[in-house]
Simulated assay, not measured.
Amino acid sequence: MKKIFKSFTFWFVILAALEIYMHQVGQDSKSIVLIYLNPILRTMSRSDIIRDFMNSGLQVSSGTIIEHISIYWYIGSIVTFIIYGLIIDVFRYLIRHMPSSTK
């Protein structure tokens, strides 16, 4: 259990859930935090084909200006935060397990 709390992936998933909640209650009405501060989702939103796919999912009502958003944006947010957490966890693992040079 202690390893889970020390994992960046765990805390990034919690952060993604808080971000989604914030979007749902209307604190992120223009999807700035949800999409535009996430480099992967921002890149996806700029491509017409990918944006059309992301908008084609089940529409969830939210407190945004347009009052609904595709569930794929929420899933994408969680997946990208898991990726970010895993990358940081791998770097931390590699740094901790590097052989120390002795002279």
Score class of each variant (00 low, 15 high):
Tyr36Ala: 04
Asp89Cys: 01
Phe53Pro: 02
Gly26Cys: 12
Ile50Leu: 15
Lys30Cys: 11
Asn55Ala: 05
Thr43Gln: 06
Arg46Leu: 11
Ser70Thr: 05
His68Arg: 15
Tyr72Val: 09
Arg42Val: 01
Val60Glu: 07
Ser31Phe: 15
Ala17Gln: 04
Phe53Met: 05
Leu37Arg: 10
Ile49Arg: 02
Arg96Trp: 04
Leu58Glu: 13
Met98Trp: 10
Arg42Gln: 08
Ser29Asp: 13
Ser31Pro: 00
Ser70Gly: 07
Pro39Gln: 05
Asp48Trp: 00
Gly63Glu: 11
Ser100Phe: 01
Ile40Cys: 02
Thr80Asp: 07
Ser56Arg: 10
Asn55Arg: 08
Tyr36Trp: 10
Ile40Arg: 00
Ser100His: 00
Gly85Leu: 09
Ile78Asn: 03
Pro39Thr: 09
Gln24Val: 07
Tyr74Gln: 14
Leu58Trp: 14
Ile49Glu: 14
Tyr93Lys: 09
Val25Pro: 03
Leu58Lys: 13
Ser31Thr: 11
Phe5Arg: 07
Val79Thr: 10
Ile78Gln: 01
Leu94Asn: 10
Ser77Gly: 04
Ile78Phe: 06
Phe12Gln: 05
Ile88Phe: 13
Ser7Leu: 07
Ile95Val: 12
Ile69Gly: 00
Ser61Trp: 01
Tyr36Thr: 07
Ile35Cys: 03
Lys2Thr: 10
Asn38Arg: 06
Phe81Thr: 06
Ile32Pro: 01
Thr102Ser: 04
His97Met: 13
Asn55Pro: 05
Met44Pro: 00
Ala16Thr: 10
Ile20Glu: 06
Ser70Asp: 09
Ser101Pro: 01
Gly76Tyr: 03
Tyr84Val: 12
Ile71Ala: 07
Arg92His: 05
Tyr21Leu: 14
Phe12Trp: 02
Ile88Gly: 02
Tyr21Ile: 14
Ile83Met: 14
Asp48Ala: 11
His23Glu: 14
Met22Lys: 10
Ile4Glu: 02
Glu67Gly: 00
Ser47Asn: 15
Ile40Glu: 03
Val79Cys: 10
Glu19Met: 15
Met22Gly: 09
Phe91Ile: 14
Ala16Gly: 13
Ser62Arg: 02
His23Met: 14
Ile49Cys: 01
Ser31Ala: 13
Ile69Arg: 12
Arg92Glu: 12
Ile69Phe: 02
Phe12Arg: 04
Val90Met: 09
Val33Thr: 06
Arg46Asp: 08
Arg92Thr: 11
Leu58Gly: 04
Ser77Lys: 12
Ile35Glu: 05
Met44Thr: 00
Tyr36Leu: 11
Lys2Tyr: 09
Gly26Ser: 12
Lys30Ile: 13
Ile40Phe: 08
Ile4Gly: 02
Leu37Val: 04
Asp48Glu: 13
Phe10Tyr: 14
Ser31Lys: 10
Asp52Thr: 12
Ile71Cys: 04
Ile32Cys: 00
Phe5Thr: 13
Ser61Phe: 08
Arg42Ala: 14
Asp48His: 02
Leu86Tyr: 04
Val13Asn: 00
Lys103Pro: 06
Thr102Ile: 13
Val13Met: 04
Tyr84Gln: 11
Gln27Lys: 09
Phe8Tyr: 14
Thr43Tyr: 05
Phe81Arg: 13
